[in-house]
């Protein structure tokens, strides 16, 4: 099997789709995660997002509710 066969596209949302999703749902209905560095988060982030830098994500997955949809950026 070729290497490329092991990889498939992952579903992603455009910023417009995310805005629409956030408009239609309450903050408690989803996990919105900012995986950038803390200083980037401080400069600006999507309202309601939770900061979990990608390097910390493996150890902090328990902070996300697996029953809710998760949007990461």
């Amino acid at each position: 099997m070729g290497i490329a066969d092991y990889f498939k596209p992952v579903d992603t949302m455009t910023p417009g789709e995310v805005r629409q999703f956030l408009d239609r749902h309450k903050p408690d209905d989803y996990n919105l995660v900012d995986v950038r560095q803390p200083k980037e988060y401080e400069r600006g982030h999507i309202p309601g997002s939770r900061l979990i830098p990608v390097a910390e994500l493996p150890g902090r997955l328990a902070e996300l509710d697996p029953k809710k949809p998760t949007i990461a950026y």
Partner: peptide, 21 residues
Amino acid sequence: MEGGMHAWQGLTAAGAPEAGM
């Protein structure tokens, strides 16, 4: 989310080659 925070802010994302797979 496609393009990350740059795209959210209306900026053009840099289009790194790893995206979406």
